[in-house]
Design a protein around this nucleic acid. Structure first.
Lengths: 222, 222
DNA sequence: TAATACAAAAATGTCGACATTTTAATACAC
DNA sequence: GTGTATTAAAATGTCGACATTTTTGTATTA
């Protein structure tokens, strides 16, 4: 573990980030200083430092003298985040196609294979599937050499997890949608290797926007 | 002033942000806690909270037990930021063209007029020109209804200011480049009103990338 | 002279205390 | 009973102190 090298503030930042994204703390929930101090066994300073960073990451909001709250979620925000993700992902892939070399192509083929094999299993562990799924999409954009754009991509993905997780609490992916999903992945790989910017741009935007409607339904039932 | 409503941490955040972007603190400069406490007349907690947020904003980096440093700048980073800005701006304008209404169009025309009039003056105050320039570009993207994308746009612009300001220290815009610049602005307006996505996309990317070469030269002389 | 070891100084990161503000609980008036 | 004022309780935000780590400076040795 390199968490031993991290200071208390950085450790709590990780914990808090995780607890917010996973939904352990609900949207708009008040985050009492005292409660958090007890929960994580820390003092005031590192806790507030972590909260400060969460404010900058839009996961927490605060009002002077009125404390901290988990930032709210909404259908509008859900759509906005996924829309932004779709656009950014499209740019990253576009740049990857421009700059990607043989290693980039190979990493896509490899990641696709790993995802494919696992998707055909009978009992799919959702976590493992998600992992391979993420790595496939990472491979697609890995040819994009812009650290800033990739960082923006990561940050938006992290934010989208809040919605995804809230949804996964009650849902497990079913076979039919999974199949459609896999077909899209196969198409994405082919278009990437063909360096077909225009087609892949449309496909990736649709691909990313797909979950929105489903999450939207489940979200409005809360 | 509503800074009276802000707590100490938020106030120092503003000051520090400004002092880093303006170049008062140099890239990679060490930020001693003690020195900053004296400079801003504050205690440890709010100062460290502000620094924590600056870390999240990539303006400051820190290593455990080794303190805080102004994050470095480089030609690679310069290019990356401007490239990212160009892509994001292009998306925002694209979405603005899709969703913009009469008010959007009118605001572009108005902002263009204000920028035009001022650009023709003999003695141009750089700050005022920059202000009108920003407002013109803001008007172009204002039809884009995505808060997240606009937020990303702002954040990238803020980061780019570090390079721009470092450069402005020694340079004043000259008449020739200003004229070319103005022609591009005129073209941008026309293309926006014509809703010509494809053309405006190329133009805005070039327009944003223009300063890079000039800044690059000045930067390598430091 | 260079390299290492040791001691002193400086700097970081964490804590708990305290002043201030907000929230709640209670009493009072209408 | 409703609404307002008052008081008590709880929570926030800031500070300075302190333990720990890093850095600097000096002396020692090869």
């Amino acid at each position: 573990m390199d968490s031993s090298k991290k200071n208390t503030a950085a450790q709590i930042l990780d914990s808090l980030t995780n607890d917010i994204i996973s939904g352990e703390f609900s949207p708009q929930q008040k985050l009492h200083i005292k409660t958090l101090k007890d929960k994580y066994n820390v003092g005031t300073s590192p806790l507030r430092e972590a909260l400060s960073q969460l404010i900058a990451k839009d996961l927490v909001v605060s009002e002077n003298q009125r404390g901290f709250y988990v930032s709210e979620i909404s259908i509008d925000d859900l759509k906005d985040i996924y829309q932004a993700r779709a656009k950014i992902e499209s740019i990253c892939i576009d740049m990857a196609i421009e700059h990607g070399d043989d290693y980039w192509e190979a990493s896509i083929i490899a990641a696709s294979h790993r995802l494919n094999k696992y998707s055909k299993l009978k009992n799919i562990d959702v976590l493992e599937w998600q992992n391979r799924h993420s790595l496939f999409h990472d491979a697609l954009v890995s040819g994009c050499k812009s650290p800033r754009l990739l960082q923006i991509r990561d940050s938006l993905f992290e934010k989208s997890k809040r919605y995804r997780n809230l949804w996964l609490k009650e849902n497990v992916s079913n076979a039919e949608t999974l199949k459609i999903n896999q077909n899209e992945h196969a198409a994405l790989m082919i278009l990437a290797l063909d360096r077909d910017k225009k087609s892949i741009s449309k496909l990736i935007e649709n691909h990313i926007m797909t979950p929105v409607e489903i999450i939207k339904k489940n979200l409005s039932q809360l």
